[in-house]
Amino acid sequence: MSRSVDERGPGAPRLAPWLFLSPLIVFAAIFLILPLGFSLYLTFTRWNPLGAPRWVGLRQFEYLFTRDAAFWDTLQNTFVVAGGLIFIGMPLSLMLAAIFARSRGRTVWRSIFYLPQVTNIVAIAYIWQFLLDDRYGLVNRGLGLIGLAGPDWLTDGTWAMVSVVVVMIWYELGKNMLVFLAAIDGLDPQIYEAAVLDGASGPRIFRSITVPMIRPAMIFVTVTSFITGMGWFALILAMTGGGPRGATDVTALYMYDMAFQDLRMGRASAAAMILFAIIAVIAVVQFRLLRERAT
């Protein structure tokens, strides 16, 4: 692709690439390396930002793991959210993509399905608060019309978690569908023609041809859904604030409140680091497992 220095014409650029890269290098130093190092240091301290950080060794980790029941609850909630995105959200978006792949008016459908993705998360959260309002929300009004009494979507703990997961799936559906769609569009139509000639049915073709052939897209969506579900707390913060009584509190949100409400920067940093470690390990394992099964 590029040539060695000797072959280059006059004014062979040695400095140029580094000049082009200089903003990135400076940024990496200040906004990547430095914060990660600072964060790692903070995990070993107790720090209320009014004073100076005090070194406490591994005490924050010990506290979170052995004495903080709420921390374990938030981890469990985190896995519920991520699991919902992977095991319900991904199959739904895959099925939708399969239906969508050979239909007319794709531009229109695509824009509609992608609409939540361009909407700010505060609007998403409030729109759904209105929809899910116990008495006057559209959802319970609709259920009332067919004679059903809808649950207290956001004030009952279990239902609040259901609501959060449903809204996340709703929000991510269009994005994941487009990833699958790109993969399905990339398949060779001749394979389908051969399968149809052999008399294979639609569902059979989907199961035996489409799904195995788009494995890379499935790996991509699984791993990104997992990472999103584990670390993304903006929607929950705006929609339920983690409530009622911690029922939808996820670890990332717990960490955020610990830092900016309780001003426990050391413990919050430790919580963030634990969550990151869990995400990193499981994402790598997922990636390996899914790739092995493919070969």
Partner: peptide, 15 residues
């Protein structure tokens, strides 16, 4: 790209 955003909130705020 592997580092999630929540890791950076506290340290960058104080930097």
């Amino acid at each position: 790209q592997m580092f999630p955003f929540f890791l950076f909130i506290i340290p960058i705020f104080f930097l």
